[in-house]
Amino acid sequence: MTDHPQRDIFFVSNSVDELGGVTSWSHQMARLFTERGHRVHVVGITDPDVPQELGELPYPTTTLYDVRPPRVRSASGLRGRIDVVEHRRRAERAAGMREQADRLTGLLRGARPGGVVIVTQVWAMEWVELADTDGLTVIGMSHESFAYSRSTSRFRRVLKHYEDVDRMLALTREDADLWIRQGLNNASFMPNPLPFMPEVPSPRTENVVVSIGRLHDQKGIDMLLDAWSETAPLHPDWRLRIYGSGEDEEILKKQCTALGLDDSVDWMGRTNDVPGALRGGSVFVLSSRGEGFPLAVMEAMAAGVPCAAFDCAPGVHEIIRDGEDGLLATLGNTGELARRLDTLMSDKALRDAMGEAARVNVQRFTTDAVVRGWEELFAFLER
C-alpha cells in the first residue's frame, strides 16, 4: 500500500531521446514515478538531431512530429512582413503546431483526476499551451541556472511561456528567487535526484582526471584544455580522460594538438558506463560555462571521486561544499582551475578525504527524498 495517490504523469520535452542531461533526468524520474505506482507517459515534440540509446522502457513514449517543423525567422521589419515565402512557412508551422497540439490533447484526455504535466524544456511549452490541459496541473521547468538562461533566447521564453503555469521550477532556491524578482511569482525549486549510488567507490589509485559531458561550448572543454596545459607539465604521469561527443569535437582536438597535449589527453567518446568511467579516475573536473544541477558532479561524488569545478551555477556550489568535498574555481579562470586540479592531483590523502566526504554528503539528494518532494508538490498544487 502506498501513502500517496496514484497519478497520471506526462513528461513533455523537446525530444524523447535527445542526447543530454534533461533527457537522462526525464527518464530517471519517469522510472522512479513508475516504480512508485504512477502511470507515466513521456512525450517529445520532434526526433532529435543527436539521439541517445534508452534501452527498454517500462512506460510508453510518443513523438508528436514525424518530420521536424519548419524553422521560421522573425517577422520584424518591412522585409519580414512582405516575405511571401517566409509568411507561408510561418502559416505552415502554425497549422502544424495546432495539429500536433490536438494530438497532445488526445493523450492528455486519458488522464485520471489529479493528472500532472511536467514540461521539462520551455520550447516544448509552446505546444502544451495550445493543448487542452483543463483539469491537469501544469509544471514548467528550467534545467539551467538563471544566469546561464539569461544569456540565451530561452530567458524571454521562460518569462512568456511559464507565466501562467501552476508552478515554475528552477533547480535551486537561489535561482527560484531570481526568477521571482523577474515577476514569475509561481517560481519554486526542486533539486535533481542522485542518479546512482555505487556499492563500491573508486579506489582513487589511477593517475587519471575524468571529464564527462557533451563536446559543446556550454561544457567548456576548451577552457579545460587551457587549464590542463598548465597542470599537465607538473604531473607528467597523469592523464586527462574526456568522455563525450558533440559538434565541437574536431575543433577541440585541434586545440589539444596545438597546446601540445596529445600525449596526456585521451578522447574516450560517449560512454554508457559512467560508473565504470568514474571508477577509473581519481579526480573529476567540471569546466562548464553554465549548468543547472549537474548530474555528472553528483555521479562523481557518489563514486567517491572529488571534483574540481568552475562555480558556474548555484547548483554547483549547492552540491559541492568547497574545501570539504571538492574545490571550486571562479568561472572562466582557467589558471585557478589548474591550481585546483594541481592541489588534488598532488595530495592523495586529500583526494581520499574529500572523496569519502563527497560520497557521504551527496546522499542528501537521494531519490526517495526527491520523489517525496515531487509528490508533496503534486498534492499541494491539487488543493
Rank of each mutant, 00 (worst) to 15 (best):
T34R: 07
E35K: 08
R36P: 01
R36Y: 02
G37Y: 03
H38N: 06
H38T: 01
R39V: 00
H41Q: 11
V42E: 08
V42C: 11
G44C: 00
I45H: 09
I45D: 12
T46L: 05
T46I: 02
D47F: 13
P48Q: 02
P48M: 00
P48S: 00
D49F: 14
V50T: 13
V50Q: 15
V50P: 11
V50I: 14
P51H: 10
P51R: 00
E53N: 09
L54S: 04
L54V: 06
G55S: 07
E56S: 10
L57Q: 14
P58C: 07
Y59M: 04
Y59S: 01
P60H: 12
P60N: 07
T61I: 07
T62Y: 12
T62V: 02
T63M: 04
T63R: 12
L64T: 01
R68L: 04
R68G: 08
P70V: 00
R71L: 11
R73N: 10
S76V: 07
S76H: 12
S76G: 08
G77Q: 03
L78F: 14
R79V: 03
R79D: 04
R79Y: 08
G80K: 14
G80M: 08
R81Y: 13
I82H: 11
I82C: 12
D83Y: 08
V85Q: 14
V85H: 13
E86L: 03
E86P: 05
H87S: 15
R88V: 12
R90G: 03
R90A: 06
R90W: 04
R90V: 00
A91R: 14
A91D: 15
E92W: 14
A94D: 14
A94W: 11
A94E: 15
A94T: 08
A95S: 12
A95C: 01
A95W: 10
M97E: 15
E99W: 13
Q100H: 09
Q100Y: 09
A101E: 06
A101Y: 11
D102V: 02
D102W: 15
R103N: 03
R103K: 07
R103A: 02
R103P: 04
R103G: 05
R103M: 03
G106S: 07
G106F: 10
G106H: 12
G106K: 06
G106W: 09
L107R: 07
G110C: 00
G110H: 01
A111N: 02
A111C: 03
R112Q: 11
R112K: 15
P113C: 10
G114D: 08
G115F: 12
G115K: 09
V116S: 09
V116Q: 13
V117R: 10
V117G: 09
I118Q: 14
I118L: 12
V119Q: 09
V119I: 04
V122D: 03
A124I: 01
A124E: 04
A124W: 02
M125D: 06
M125P: 11
E126N: 06
E126H: 09
E129N: 10
A131C: 07
D132A: 05
T133S: 05
T133G: 08
G135Y: 13
G135K: 02
L136W: 15
V138S: 03
V138R: 03
V138M: 06
